[in-house]
Amino acid sequence: MATTPTSGTFFESDRLPWETVGEGVSRQILTYEPGLMLVRVSFEAGAVGALHHHMHTQMTYVESGVFRCTVGEEERTLRAGDAFYAPSYVWHGVVCEEAGKLVDAFSPMREDFV
């Protein structure tokens, strides 16, 4: 698992490591503290963020690309500038239709990521 210092004020993404977490999917932990975590996830076209759920509240911003996103029983296609909210324990996942990046915010932080 990747580690990122929790101390400091500024975190420059070009200095932070990427971790492969699935076929065509890599993750970069930008910063975190116990109550909040910010993570960038890069997807190749066709890559899948499988349906899953967790105790954490998640908000996801589409930085680039096109993603078919499922939250609960609803599915939408989202593009750069769009976002979705996945409440605690609600099933959610994505399919990347055009290569891109998502920025995930979790509350509390995902201890399983560090």
Rank of each mutant, 00 (worst) to 15 (best):
M1Q: 11
M1P: 13
M1Y: 11
A2V: 15
A2C: 08
A2L: 07
T3M: 15
T3L: 13
T3E: 15
T4V: 15
T4S: 11
P5C: 09
P5Y: 13
P5L: 15
T6G: 13
S7F: 00
S7R: 02
G8T: 13
T9I: 03
F10I: 10
F11M: 01
F11S: 03
E12G: 10
S13N: 07
D14E: 06
P17A: 15
P17E: 15
P17D: 15
W18T: 13
E19D: 04
E19H: 08
T20M: 09
T20N: 12
V21T: 15
G22M: 00
G22V: 02
G22K: 01
G22C: 01
G22T: 01
E23D: 11
G24H: 02
G24S: 00
G24T: 01
S26Y: 05
R27M: 09
Q28E: 02
Q28D: 02
I29F: 04
I29T: 12
I29S: 06
I29H: 04
L30F: 11
L30G: 07
T31M: 05
E33C: 01
P34C: 08
P34H: 07
P34V: 10
P34K: 08
M37G: 07
M37P: 07
L38W: 05
L38R: 04
V39Y: 02
V39T: 10
R40D: 06
R40I: 01
R40T: 03
V41N: 06
S42M: 03
S42A: 11
F43V: 10
F43R: 09
F43T: 11
E44H: 09
E44R: 12
G46M: 05
G46W: 05
A47R: 06
A47I: 09
A47E: 08
A47G: 08
A50V: 06
L51N: 06
H53P: 11
H53L: 12
H54A: 05
H56W: 09
Q58L: 12
Q58K: 14
Q58W: 14
Q58N: 15
M59C: 13
Y61N: 14
Y61C: 13
E63I: 15
S64L: 07
S64Q: 07
S64T: 12
F67Q: 07
R68L: 04
C69T: 13
T70E: 06
V71M: 07
V71Y: 10
G72Q: 11
E74R: 06
E74V: 07
E74P: 01
E75W: 10
E75C: 14
R76W: 02
T77Q: 00
T77W: 00
L78K: 06
R79P: 04
R79V: 10
G81L: 02
D82Q: 02
A83H: 00
F84M: 00
F84P: 10
F84E: 01
F84V: 06
Y85A: 09
A86E: 08
A86N: 10
P87S: 05
P87W: 05
P87T: 10
P87F: 03
S88L: 03
Y89C: 12
V90P: 10
W91S: 11
H92T: 06
H92P: 10
G93V: 00
V94Y: 00
V95G: 03
V95Q: 04
C96M: 08
C96K: 04
E98G: 11
E98N: 11
G100V: 14
G100Y: 14
V103S: 10
D104Q: 02
F106C: 12
P108T: 00
M109F: 04
R110L: 12
F113K: 02
F113G: 02
V114P: 05
V114F: 15
V114R: 12
V114A: 13
